[in-house]
Design a protein around this nucleic acid. Structure first.
Lengths: 195, 195
DNA sequence: ATTATTTTTGACAAGTATGTCAAAGATGAC
DNA sequence: GTCATCTTTGACATACTTGTCAAAAATAAT
């Protein structure tokens, strides 16, 4: 390539995620993004065609990271502990002050998706990914006799639950309440203790 | 009163809820609202001071209706059936084509709340209301020996679950999936069959 | 019927956001 | 070092949104 891009795309996308998280899709302007990334508005228009595309790239970047991150949390050999750890981490990420983002994807769903079919697709890919990760772990748990139930249905149920917890974060901003929710859910799930 | 308002406030709020539901808070302009309600923009500014206030009124109107509506669904004397009916109705409302709104409150949470503390308050009131309705029914169920568990924690858990289902609607727009989610949840809950 | 009061109307000004473009600046390939 | 090619920059035109206001219209109370 000849005229090389000056700005660090990785960084720009990270910052974009942050800005979109704070202000929401519609309320974020290209000027906001330019100011916070330090990249001129014109450059952003040159690199991405418009806000939709930029958002799409930023969102994909975010969800890819998130899924990779979350998968590691299910490694505990005890299924119930594994899912407890997963949900604990989800809650922690949602409440993390530094990344004050609440749930980026939930906001995206509510705002950006209807304006851009690509984003809608990207969202289903994300939740499908989350579902698969959990389904696989549940199937393992069934093999290990640590869980009795339908892995597929339960995974979908858990995906919904994590979305619900993300909403609770927005309304109450109360980590204890979020913790209570997932603990109640886990208590009710048909895990079996293997001694 | 002397100079009487011409437009029907009830109708305007209903339409406003509809418009906000479709476009979202930020993307809805006062002009949109004026056009769809048939009330001039100036009139809206006169009656409500700005979009925030108008939204607040519309939102309160919506949640009041919703809570009254939902409470009736828990009347079945069998607790599990009562909650099944409740969740079924929630899903049906979310998927109702005529009111194509998805979940108005979830959108509100994600968009409007951060701009207006009043709306944030209104939202917690709404979810608190939902929680109380479910908690009361659960306490009854405990008395009736139809449920064993913590009514408070379970109510909060169920509130989160309904929020999650609302998000699922937005992403997948698939009633069967939503039904599967609440059925899985209910299956896992410690209801007792009373013969 | 008149009055006092409020709503309605349409126009206006100010501010904000978008998308485009030509000129200037960089840089890898040769 | 020169060239070809892409990026950066800042300015521009366009469009949209908001909020305000004065004049006109409407109406309940007297």
């Amino acid at each position: 390539m000849v005229g090389t891009r000056k700005f660090n795309e990785e960084k720009v996308l990270d910052i974009a995620v942050d800005v979109f998280s704070r202000k929401g899709f519609n309320a974020t302007t290209m000027l906001d993004l330019a100011e916070e990334t330090g990249v001129q508005r014109g450059s952003l228009y040159n690199a991405y065609q418009n806000k939709n595309v930029l958002f799409f790239k930023a969102f994909s970047h975010y969800t890819d990271n998130f899924l990779m991150f979350i998968e590691k949390e299910l490694q505990n050999s005890d299924a119930k502990k594994a899912f407890t750890q997963l949900l604990k981490t989800v809650v922690e990420r949602l409440c993390n002050d530094k990344e004050v983002r609440g749930c980026f994807s939930t906001r995206a769903i509510m705002e950006a998706a209807q304006k851009c079919p690509d984003i809608q697709l990207c969202l289903t890919r994300f939740l499908d990914g989350l579902e698969v990760i959990m389904k696989n772990r549940l199937e393992q748990a069934i093999k290990d006799k640590q869980f009795i139930g339908d892995a597929q249905a339960t995974a979908r149920y858990l995906v919904a639950l994590t979305r619900g917890i993300a909403v609770i974060e927005r309304v109450y901003n109360d980590k204890d309440r979020m913790t209570e929710v997932y603990q109640t859910a886990l208590e009710y799930m048909p895990f079996k203790q293997v001694l």
